[in-house]
Amino acid sequence: MNKPITHCLLCERVLEVRFGWKELLQKTLPRAICNRCESKFERIETQQETGIFSLFYYNEAMKDFLHRYKFMHDVLLAHVFNEILHLHLKNEKRLIIPIPMHPENLNIRTFAHVDELLNAAKIPFEHHLTKRSSDIQSLKTRDERLQTSQLFDVIDCSKIKGRNILLIDDIYTTGTTMRHAKKVLENAGAIEVSGFTLIHS
C-alpha cells in the first residue's frame, strides 16, 4: 500500500502521527490503528504450546477483525498488526514459510491472508508447501480436525533439507494445521520446525 494511513483501519478515527527518535532508530512501520482499538486486543503473556508462539487471544475484538479481514475480503486490514509482526519477526534467521491456501479457496478469498499479513509487516517469506484439499478447517468440528489426513505436500525437498523453519499462520486452534505442516517438513529433512501465529484460540 503506497498511500499513508491517516485514519484507524478499524474505527476510522484520525491517527496520532508519531515520529521521533524511537521511531527513527527502531525503523517502526506506520501506525494503522488507534490506541482505543489496539487496547481491545488481548496479548498473550504466557505461551501454552511448546514450539508455538502466539501473540493474541481470540477475544471478541479479534473475532471481529478476523471476520472482516478474511471473510469480508478487506485486504487493507492486513496492516492492522504490521508493527507488532515486524517487531517480532524482523530479525528472524529461520526460513519463514506461511501456511498456504488451496488454489480453489484462494480464488474465493481473492488474497492469501497469511501472505498479506507478512507483506504488510515487510517480512520476507518463501512458499514451500502446497495444500492437498480445499476443505476449510474452521468449518470442521474439533474431532474432525484431529482426524484429518495429511493436509500438505512439500514442493521441493532439496530446499528444505537441513533448514530451520518457522511456520506462520493466522490462528492456532487445535494445532492440526501446524502438526501436519511440521511433520511433512521434518520428513523432507528440516532440522527444526517451529510455529508462530497471530492468534491462539
Rank of each mutant, 00 (worst) to 15 (best):
G175Q: 06
S158P: 05
Y172E: 00
G162I: 15
D170P: 02
I168Y: 00
L185K: 03
R179W: 03
K182N: 09
H180E: 07
A181K: 02
I165M: 13
K159E: 14
K161F: 12
T174G: 04
D170E: 07
K161Y: 11
N164R: 15
L185N: 05
R163D: 03
I168F: 08
I171K: 06
R179F: 02
L166V: 13
A188I: 07
K183L: 12
K159Y: 12
A188S: 12
V184W: 01
R163G: 04
E186L: 12
I160W: 00
N164D: 15
K159G: 09
E186P: 01
S158N: 14
Y172H: 05
L167P: 05
E186C: 08
D169P: 13
T177R: 02
I160S: 00
K183Y: 12
T174A: 06
T176I: 13
C157M: 03
L185E: 07
K182W: 08
K161A: 14
E186D: 03
K159M: 14
D170L: 06
G175L: 07
I165W: 09
G162K: 15
K183H: 14
K182S: 11
N187I: 11
N164K: 15
S158E: 14
H180Y: 04
T173K: 10
C157T: 01
T173W: 08
S158V: 07
N187S: 13
T174R: 03
G175V: 07
E186G: 03
L166C: 13
V184K: 01
C157H: 01
I171L: 15
V184A: 05
I165K: 11
Y172I: 01
G175I: 05
I165T: 10
K182L: 07
L185Y: 09
A181S: 11
I168L: 08
T174Q: 05
N187H: 10
I168C: 03
H180P: 01
A188D: 09
C157F: 00
R163M: 12
V184C: 08
G162E: 15
A181G: 09
K159V: 07
K182V: 01
K182G: 05
I160D: 00
D169T: 14
R179Q: 09
I168M: 06
R163H: 10
